[in-house]
C-alpha cells in the first residue's frame, strides 16, 4: 500500500497544513479527487482558499478545479451543521415511507432538505442509497448507518441534539 494516503484528522486550514496535504497527492493516480476527499474529511468542506493552491499543484485552471468540486455531491463549499442527518431518498426507501419520514424530519428540525439551519446546529441532506435497501428507511447520522428508521427515532435523535449543552 502506498504510504501517506490516509487522511489525518488535523484541520487542513492550519497554517501550512493545506499545502502539505495537497502536496501528498500530486503525481498520484486521481490525485485531485484524493486531495479534495482529504480536504473535505479534514475540514468538513472545501474552503475557497484551497482553489488556487489546488490549481497550481495539479497544473489546472481554477475553473477546472471548481468544476470538479461542483460535480460531486460529497464536496461541500461551506461548512455544514454540527450534526448531519442524511436521509435516503431512493426507490427502495420510498417504498417504505421515506418521503413521509423526510417531511417529518424537516418539519421537526425546522430546516429544508439539503440545508443547514440558521443556528448552524443541524444539516439535513438527501442521499441516494446507502445499500440498506431491504431494511429501509435508511439514514446516516453523523456518519453512522441507521436502518429501519421511524418517526420516533427521528424525534429521539432531534431531541438529543436540541438538548446538548
Amino acid at each position: 500500500m502506498r504510504e501517506g494516503l490516509e487522511v489525518t484528522d488535523a484541520k487542513a486550514q492550519n497554517v501550512g497544513a493545506m499545502d502539505a496535504l495537497i502536496a501528498k497527492y500530486v503525481g498520484v493516480q486521481g490525485g485531485l479527487m484524493r486531495a479534495l476527499l482529504a480536504l473535505q474529511e479534514a475540514d468538513g468542506y472545501i474552503d475557497a482558499s484551497a482553489l488556487p493552491k489546488l490549481a497550481a499543484a495539479f497544473n489546472l485552471t481554477k475553473a477546472e478545479v471548481k468544476g470538479v468540486i461542483s460535480f460531486y455531491d460529497d464536496f461541500a463549499r461551506a461548512p455544514k451543521g454540527e450534526h448531519v442527518l442524511r436521509l435516503c431518498q431512493a426507490e427502495a426507501c420510498q417504498a417504505v415511507g421515506a418521503r413521509e419520514l423526510t417531511q417529518h424530519a424537516c418539519e421537526r428540525a425546522d430546516v429544508a432538505m439539503g440545508d443547514t439551519r440558521m443556528d448552524g446546529r443541524i444539516t439535513i441532506e438527501p442521499v441516494y442509497c446507502l445499500g440498506l435497501c431491504a431494511n429501509g428507511p435508511a439514514a446516516m447520522v453523523d456518519g453512522k448507518l441507521k436502518a429501519a428508521v421511524g418517526e420516533a427515532d427521528i424525534d429521539a435523535l432531534l431531541d438529543a441534539w436540541e438538548h446538548e449543552a
Partner: peptide, 26 residues
C-alpha cells in the same frame, strides 16, 4: 489500490468512472 468516489451516481457508468479515477469530473 482502493479509490473512493464522492457521491456521484453517474460514476457507475464505466467511462465516467475512469474520468473520476483520473481525478476529473465524472
Amino acid at each position: 489500490e482502493l479509490f473512493m468516489g464522492a457521491g456521484a451516481y453517474i460514476c457507475g457508468e464505466e467511462t465516467s468512472l475512469l474520468d473520476s479515477l483520473e481525478g476529473k469530473r465524472g
